[in-house]
Amino acid sequence: MGDFISTYGFLIVTMVQAGLLGLSLYFPLQAGQLSLATPGFYALGGYTAAILLTNPSFAGLRDTLGNGMFVLTWLVAAALSALLGLAVGIPALRLRGIYLALATIAFVEILRVLALNLTITGGAIGIFNVPQPFGFEDRGQFIWLFGPMLLLTLLFARQLERSRVGRALRAIREDELAADAMGVNPTRYKVLAFVIGAVLAGIVGAMSAPLLSSWNARQGTFDASIAVLAFVLIGGSRNVWGPVVGGALLTAVPELLRFLADWRLVINGLVLVVASLYLPQGIVGALERLRRPAPPQRPADLPRPEVKA
């Protein structure tokens, strides 16, 4: 068991991390909003943790709090992501469809350019030697952080779906005009879903900076936006397990096929193409259809008696 963890521990952690990032996109999609801002908030959280854990200005605070400093980075990252999510979400969520996607991609690029040009973020080089939390000696041990975070997020998502807020989000996703006519405030609920996704991405970023031991502008790019979107589309966007399954699959396939060298990327691309063509509702959606009982068949129409003249 120890050999398995040492060999595949980091892969398992990155699969869980990918599932969490997929869930951060899942929440805006619950309101029918295609937001690609997740890597931006992920990068913000990572920079927050890296700065607080390495900058000499916070050395006294680190000495005072000890391991509590890591928890503080999560809270600060969540607060900053929520504030920035509100600032971006209120104007951006007036857009719909591809226009919202373009606006959130622009947001990610703005943050990336700022990170490349600010001194506190380390510029193009980034921030190195981010300390490990709680005395972790192996990156596989981060499963004790990411695993409970995934379970809490899934529980929260389930409770949200069953609540009044969840019903309002589904109503907006199905027909925003009808939801507005029924007294649901679309803007308020869309911004709420956007902020929830932003907070989750920010916390995951703050947890990931110590995992990677460094942080730079490559963590929040347009490519990362497309990757997170693929997690949700392949896994399924209508079920909370969809982003988790999609993120785990698309993270594991290239690593497990590493012995095929560059061909592993070809196979990964084929998985994307096949899933997009034959699983339009994602893997989880296809499994749900298989489990769902077939609708009862209508009895064959009886022949009508002939009417003689």
Rank of each mutant, 00 (worst) to 15 (best):
R167Q: 13
I196A: 04
L211I: 07
M182F: 15
R238K: 06
L249N: 03
G247H: 08
G247P: 07
P148S: 02
I234E: 02
E174M: 04
P133Y: 09
D175Y: 12
R164P: 00
S214F: 06
I125E: 09
A217Q: 12
A179R: 05
R158Q: 05
G236W: 04
F194R: 06
P243E: 04
F142V: 02
V228M: 07
R164L: 01
G236N: 05
L151D: 08
Y189R: 14
L212T: 07
L118D: 02
I143H: 13
Y189Q: 13
M149I: 07
P148K: 05
K190Q: 15
I196S: 02
W144L: 08
T187G: 05
R218K: 12
L145K: 11
L257N: 01
R162A: 14
L154W: 03
R188S: 13
I226V: 15
F136Q: 02
L154N: 03
E176S: 14
L160G: 09
S237G: 07
G220K: 02
V204L: 08
A198C: 05
P148V: 03
A181L: 10
W241E: 02
R218F: 14
A201M: 03
R258E: 05
L152Q: 07
L257K: 00
I172E: 05
T251M: 14
M207Y: 14
L256D: 06
P243R: 06
G122L: 10
V130F: 02
I172Y: 07
K190F: 13
P131L: 05
V240N: 11
L151Y: 11
I120R: 12
E137W: 07
G122C: 09
G246N: 00
L192K: 04
A224L: 09
A252H: 01
F134N: 00
Q159C: 01
I125T: 15
S214H: 11
G147W: 14
L260T: 13
E176V: 13
I234W: 00
F194A: 04
R258H: 10
I196C: 04
E255I: 10
R139C: 00
A179F: 10
D262Y: 15
R188E: 13
I143K: 15
A217C: 08
A230L: 08
D262P: 12
F222E: 07
T119W: 06
W215H: 03
R162N: 15
D223C: 12
R167W: 11
W144I: 05
T187K: 11
I196M: 12
T221H: 11
A230E: 05
L177A: 14
D180T: 13
